[in-house]
Design a protein around this nucleic acid. Structure first.
Lengths: 348, 348
DNA sequence: CTGTTAGCGCCTTCAC
DNA sequence: GTGAAGGCGCTAACAG
């Protein structure tokens, strides 16, 4: 390569070259005031000439206040989390913070390890979307007294700031929509009931069914975290003699798995079966029929998380705040009236 | 909150509590050998008791060798990049490196800014998937003498290690496939020709067309980076009197946009028009027809990038290495024989 | 084996 | 305005 491993110039080098003291150079380069025009210019020149780069890490160390934020998320495969990551990344960088991302891959052990590791990099705050069984992991953060905001897979009982979607309301509404279409045998597909928000989603469905007097039709099936597992479980559901006339998929990935199963079972959407998806995604728009779905306000959520974090960063430590956002039901083409034949067979 | 802002215990605190010197404590806690069982145990105990966390940043500073790797990618919306991110994150953490991600959002100015910012955090190396007009940005990195690996949107002329997919071969093969199906009016949809790899993809198509003597049928249309822009351009292409019988979409996002346009134009896939997608994605499997696509070996690419980075990290600085991976053509249902009627109209 | 010491690159009083 | 000095938390020589 071209250059020998000449070490990067330091603040001292710049100061020497500019013939000022380190203190003065520091003031100039960190944008503080109180230095004469002339010397400031000399410093800038020297810095440019030497190709000086400020060592942000050393500055952090000295200041005792890091400028990185840790962000741990459970699954990069899930568009919803990625969207949040994207929003956070923007907010953070806008405010002069680096975002250190780590992904737990839905594995609690790994999550714990990653949280520790990220925190060893001295972060000013942590934002976490947990995976199941996260309690220990969170303790780590709290013990360190690091500002913490949790999102999505938490409930209001959590002793830290949280931002969530009102899952119960969302699935309640969705289920009402399905019922309004004449469906009775509605099956709710959920990844796992170990997750608070998944539980809430299931509850919303259950409550709506009950309110409609459809108690005996309630079916909640846990079908796993991966598309493959979900595919299998759904196939199972569909092969049942009395198969449901509508499927309510409890999330992004679940929808994908369910869709594959529907395809494999050679069922027509929505003539044979209706499908409602919790979580919206760009690709849903190119499906025929266009998927009906529930859209979480990702941008708003990302923004809220960041606002909460900012407050914490500024030292405002009040009682934990729990923000909840309303999701939007997008009725499109994959949810239609229940098949007439089935209604007859039901003898209802 | 519960605890007052008691500062975190430092190495010295631990050493004091364990009644050993800082040096000894350091050795124990950083896993070095040469400390007696008994004292080591005392140190561990004290550390646990005080809730000590090693300050990795300070350690880096002292060692003069950071343990973070910067990763700048252009678009978190593109599944392909996210997959690479995921792979890199795993490799990095496995080797004790933090991955600092930043996303440029396809904006060169922003990319430059983010590269600078990430680097101000003292990274041991940089991995970059650039957006167009990235040359200046890269100079920044090279001047700092930071190990650099570039991927995807680069060619072999680049003076640093690179990892890419053999785009030319991939689109050449894809085009041959389409031609073999009887298509002549094949249009190649590309985001922008400002990107090397997009250019190569287009070239592969062009060369295949030429070899088949279909020079006069060659149509490459630049349709922009966002799904919306692509949607519009494709709609335009499809409204043409002599519309193509096959569309070759040059990437992930392009495919999505094209699909929307096909849907809006009320064309049947693949009866009216065939579609071949560069880049495979999970959602493609739930489309009817299942999309034919070109799959890049993401895992292999991610792994290769990391291997190159590791070598650089270990001080091996040879001439730049350029790795190229072969993509796989997955023939599925969206590519079929050209419509007979059209063939007649062609008068061929 | 163990303790002491001298910084890593930077910021921040504090005198001048 | 300006420069000198001390130290953030840690590690890597060294002495003992």
């Amino acid at each position: 390569m071209s250059l020998p491993d000449r070490p990067l110039p330091t603040l001292r080098d710049v100061a020497n070259a500019a013939e000022v003291s380190v203190g003065t150079a520091s003031k100039v380069l960190s944008g503080a005031s109180g230095v004469s025009e002339a010397r400031a210019q000399r410093v800038w020149d020297a810095a440019r000439r030497l190709g000086y780069r400020r060592n942000g890490i050393a500055a952090d160390l000295r200041r005792g206040r890091p400028s990185s934020i840790g962000f741990v998320l459970p699954d990069l495969t899930n568009q919803f989390f990625v969207d949040i990551a994207r929003a956070l990344e923007n907010h953070a960088l806008e405010h002069g913070y680096r975002l250190i991302m780590a992904h737990a891959d839905e594995d609690p052990a790994r999550e714990m390890e990653r949280i520790r590791f990220v925190m060893s990099g001295q972060v000013a705050g942590m934002i976490i979307i947990p995976c199941r069984g996260y309690e220990h992991a969170i303790d780590e953060v709290r013990e360190c007294n690091v500002p913490l905001v949790m999102a999505d897979r938490v409930d209001d009982s959590f002793p830290a700031d949280t931002v969530t979607t009102d899952s119960h309301a969302a699935t309640f509404d969705g289920t009402v929509h399905l019922i309004g279409l004449g469906h009775k045998r509605i099956t709710f597909l959920v990844n796992t009931l170990d997750l608070v928000n998944s539980r809430e989603r299931a509850d919303g469905y259950v409550d709506a069914m009950k309110r409609a007097g459809l108690d005996s039709y309630i079916r909640v099936v846990e079908c796993g975290m991966t598309a493959a597992e979900i595919h299998a479980s759904t196939l199972d559901v569909l092969s049942n003699a009395l198969r449901p006339t509508a499927l309510f998929a409890g999330g992004n990935v679940t929808t994908l798995g369910a869709l594959r199963a529907i395809r494999d079972a050679e069922l027509r959407l929505p003539e044979d079966i209706s499908l409602l998806s919790f979580d919206d995604a760009p690709w849903m728009s190119v499906l025929r029929p266009y998927l009906s779905s529930i859209r979480q306000p990702v941008e708003a959520i990302g923004h809220a998380i960041w606002q909460l974090m900012l407050k914490l960063l500024n030292g405002e430590r009040n009682a934990p705040v729990h923000l909840s956002f309303k999701a939007e039901l997008l009725v499109r083409e994959s949810t239609a009236a229940a098949p007439a034949v089935q209604a007859v067979l039901d003898g209802a």
